[in-house]
């Protein structure tokens, strides 16, 4: 997939050199094996660091908020477009200053699954053959079946890139993701069918791990409020009206996660970043998907659904 990386670098070089953008937001290799990180270039000579491959997991669109008002190009995958559109609407970003660079993605790979197989050896991606990737490990060429190594959210890839502006760029590369026909709500349905007691034990266990680092909020493109209800508005002793204390106890943790799920309900682009960044692996997408599933059953589904109503809504008990 060297060709794709080359094309990306050429594009970034051209855009930065001709002054079409001030900043190019993409990916580069990180300092750990199999880890790719966000990379920022403001000068043409910096583009050599850029790469694109199936390990480019982070969703970069929220970084746009840091550079509001500047001309920025940002690499996105198709699955991140809903979160981009939501951010654009929520924060009223100037669309004409943003150049989307839609990277052809044949499905991301899960570093945790690869780690087990290759125990930290660097991989070089050679080709995408639809159902499998060809990689080079050391001297050897290997074939990775997507079915085995795919990143969980890619099993329900939307594969749509609508609503692009003429200035946006689609990088061309032969890639494809076969339809894998996985029910995106499988995890939700499984838990729904468990007895209430078991559900409570499950959430108690995973929420007890929460260290309240707020990484899920910081990374979330739907969490873009200027002021968050979980940040104390006043320092220390002046505080009188906190929603909740800083204690790492279940009442606070439940309040935080359930509120966050409700706040992003109907606006979440399901990019899965909250779950990826969680240092204690709380399955946050289960909450989000549960709400998405319920909201889909409401009449007249549209953005901002929880800020509207229909006379035909279901009756609470």
């Amino acid at each position: 997939m060297r060709g794709l990386t080359e094309a990306l670098r050429e594009l970034a070089y051209r855009l930065l050199r001709e002054g079409e953008v001030e900043l190019f937001l993409g990916y580069s290799w990180g300092t750990l094996p199999l880890v790719v990180r966000p990379c920022f270039a403001t000068r043409p000579e910096q583009v050599e660091a850029f790469i694109f491959n199936p390990l480019c997991l982070p969703n970069l669109v929220k970084y746009l908020l840091r550079f509001e008002g500047r001309r920025v190009a940002v690499v996105v995958k198709k699955c991140e477009l809903p979160s981009f559109r939501q951010l654009l609407a929520d924060r009223n970003l100037e669309r004409k200053k943003i150049r989307l660079v839609v990277a052809p993605c044949g499905g991301l790979l899960d570093p945790a699954k690869l780690q087990k197989e290759f125990s930290g050896q660097p991989l070089e991606f050679i080709a995408d053959r639809g159902k499998e990737y060809v990689v080079r490990v050391g001297e050897e060429e290997k074939v990775l079946a997507k079915q085995l190594y795919l990143y969980p959210r890619c099993f329900s890839c939307p594969q749509k890139d609508e609503d692009l502006e003429p200035e946006d760029i689609r990088l061309e590369f032969s890639t494809s993701l076969p339809s894998l026909e996985v029910d995106p709500y499988a995890g939700v349905s499984y838990l729904e069918e468990r007895p209430a007691e078991e559900r409570r034990e499950f959430w108690d266990r995973v929420f007890k791990r929460c260290i309240r680092c707020y990484a899920c909020r910081e990374v979330c493109p739907a969490c873009s409020c200027h002021e968050c209800c979980f940040d104390p508005p006043l320092p220390g002793w002046q505080r009188t009206v906190d929603w909740m204390s800083k204690a790492h106890w279940l009442p606070e943790i439940y309040q935080y996660h359930l509120t966050r799920a409700l706040h992003v309900a109907g606006r979440c682009g399901e990019c899965g970043e909250c779950e990826r960044v969680c240092p204690v692996k709380i399955p946050l997408m289960l909450l989000v998907k549960k709400l998405a599933k319920e909201i889909q059953s409401l009449p007249g589904v549209e953005p901002g659904i929880l800020a509207s109503y229909s006379p035909d809504d279901p009756e609470p008990h």
Binding site: R37, P38, F40, Y63, R66, I211, R212, C213, Y214, A215, R217, E218, V219, V277, P279
Partner: peptide
């Protein structure tokens, strides 16, 4: 800091 999320991990 461009890259930093500002979380507490």
């Amino acid at each position: 800091a461009w890259r930093c999320l500002g979380c507490g991990i």
